[in-house]
Design a binder for these strands. Structure first.
Lengths: 363, 363
DNA sequence: CAGACTCCCGGAAACGTTTACAGCTATCGG
DNA sequence: CCGATAGCTGTAAACGTTTCCGGGAGTCTG
């Protein structure tokens, strides 16, 4: 009796040993019954009873150590306050749930160390896989991604040849869609409110805007370009600065949060939207439809990207030997009240300020 | 040699055994070096080298099984799309990070089974503790909360005597603040757009509205009360229904998402805010300040509640024998442009529709 | 009625880590 | 020069679970 294993841990919580002892069977039998595989009726009864009496609840950590899986998948994004990530998350969640797993989200808050720390911690087996959408990518970061012990899928641009599953869009082209639309509506003094240039999306959108202007032979006026943060407050402030020194007849914003800030700044400055200034956001989140007037916005297919990323991840979890793959989702433009009705209206349209329809016209 | 432990698991990933063998030391020494405790200079060198060569990365699951902690804390909320939870999350994150842990968020989507499933899964040791903010509470739920293997703190109303740490606010009183303010501004036909009555907050706010009306001797007009969902689209639809049958001069909304929907519906119907209809939201999220005009809103102290909940949780993790505690955060009212300037303006105010200040006057 | 087959059970190994313990060597004080 | 002490080291147990394997009992078949 002396060297017998301690049945009740100091912690007081029952283990499978506790219920096995109480039921008078071996831990193997207890485990089998608790997992619903085999066992004679009598054994089943005894084990179930014992488990109920002591309030047994299995230790998932121990189970995972044995089974080498946790049933959890993580998503790491910059900022959950941005509705675009919420939409992405919902799409991912749907796919992940269908595989019987649960999704956990972590907001990195753009603290890059935080993100790598998370990678190192979570990826070390706490989760079966991970989806990351970094807006800044360092080398340190990249190696952490590549030799993660657990499958990782990246949403967003990444160094060309990184050996990681990757779902991206073409936000340069997205900006071009917006500019084309505004030019076609007769706008010429098109302003651009961007996010930080040292982020991957910020840089891409800047390049896209300049290229589009050039393609339309519009001379570039740096006064019409302003940079802030990918946030509402910064977008509003940036727009105020821009309006103080220039007089745009249209504004392209690098995301919807910025666009909402711009709308606020415009209205506060007494400009009418879209009569005086046409406004186009980006990401096409619910936020764009919540505004009055509703905002035109370039969809970068966040939900679609999330969906694809989740599927890539599940496939890689199922077969880790798969070669790294890359998928691309094309942008599209949803035209709504904030940038006026398309010039030759194909169908009878009411006045733009009354009951704008929930559905944008997709270009 | 026959019964020697397998050094390279089928998986191919190196374990502490791999590096120990490669360094020519015992696993104990290897583990010590890797954890930075002790070891002769020579041993340290050899182990470090071996670890680097094979690309060793420790298995966090195994470590947790041994140490009985994971360094993770989870937050489970209804809907991350609602900015109120984002604010709460940020506050929680700050506290949790200061304890060296990381925060994971799960959106239950209101699927009650999902929430209990999450509780049972995560709480079974995957995380060191958990904060839950349920909007519907069933018995099943409650028992899952009470006998969770891991500390749990609930944010929101809960059955009076549940033995769980709990942080709440008084949203009945919050609604009263809104009504008082509107009545004081001379409004009499006050409408109310609420969320589902079978949710805890929905029921509380309904009771609060009725009580406040009664206190002001305003006869209750059921036509002025409408119920939808705690979402933008539902709020807009509910407001449209309400406007179709009644003519309010003010509207109280059960949260900011609903309030934004209401604003959209009002503007689309040609009503001026606040001239024709004064509007007050609830939760005082960033969304309220993003609108034009900015929305008055009843703050339920979400950030503060999150902060308190996180501290309660950390304390309970440190000492699980603590008796269950309950804390209460009082509501307050932020008055902004959507409900007009307070009648006797204490300081010179510009016209309400120009550049509304970012700061509301707190009642 | 013997052999084959099925079903159930318990012992023990395994997942990968940390750590208590004991043994060893080298150093130091007297 | 000897005993105490400090610092390293390796063996083995532990965390709580699942699962392989061999043995025993019962049933079916020829």
């Amino acid at each position: 009796m002396g060297r017998k294993r301690l049945q009740e841990p100091a912690d007081g919580r029952p283990t499978v040993h506790t219920v096995a002892a109480r039921a008078g069977v071996s831990i193997a039998s207890a485990s089998r019954v608790l997992n619903g595989i085999g066992g004679s009726p009598e054994t089943i009864r005894k084990v179930r009873a014992a488990a109920a009496e002591v309030g047994y609840v299995p230790n998932a950590i121990a189970r995972s150590l044995q089974s080498q899986r946790t049933g959890l998948v993580a998503l790491a994004v910059e900022d959950i306050g941005n509705p675009v990530y919420v939409e992405m998350m919902r799409a991912i969640e749907a796919v992940v749930a269908s595989s019987g797993r649960q999704l956990l989200v972590h907001a990195t808050g753009g603290r890059i160390d935080n993100e790598t720390a998370l990678l190192r911690r979570l990826a070390n087996r706490y989760v079966d896989g991970m989806i990351v959408s970094p807006i800044r990518v360092t080398d340190d970061h990249l190696t952490a991604l590549v030799d993660s012990p657990v499958p990782v899928v990246v949403v967003g641009q990444l160094g060309a040849d990184a050996a990681v599953d990757n779902v991206r869009t073409d936000s340069r082209h997205g900006v071009a869609l917006a500019v084309d639309h505004l030019v076609a509506s007769g706008r010429r003094r098109i302003g651009f409110v961007n996010g930080p240039l040292d982020t991957v999306p910020g840089a891409a959108r800047d390049a896209g805007f300049r290229a589009a202007q050039a393609r339309h032979d519009i001379p570039l006026d740096e006064d019409l370009i302003e940079v802030g943060d990918f946030q509402y407050v910064a977008g509003r402030a940036a727009t105020e600065r821009l309006l103080a020194r220039a007089d745009p007849d249209a504004l392209v914003c690098a995301n919807d949060l910025i666009a909402v800030g711009a709308l606020h700044a415009l209205l506060a400055a007494g400009r009418q939207v879209p009569q005086d200034v046409a406004l186009v956001g980006m990401d096409d989140t619910e936020l764009a439809r919540m505004m009055f007037p509703q905002l035109s916005s370039v969809s970068l297919g966040s939900a679609e990207r999330g969906h694809r990323a989740a599927e890539l991840l599940l496939q890689r979890i199922a077969d880790p030997t798969l070669p790294p793959r890359r998928e691309q989702v094309p942008p599209s433009l949803a035209i709504r009240a904030s940038s006026g009705t398309p010039l030759p209206a194909p169908r009878p349209a009411g006045p733009p300020t009354t009951h704008p329809s929930s559905e944008g016209v997709t270009a």
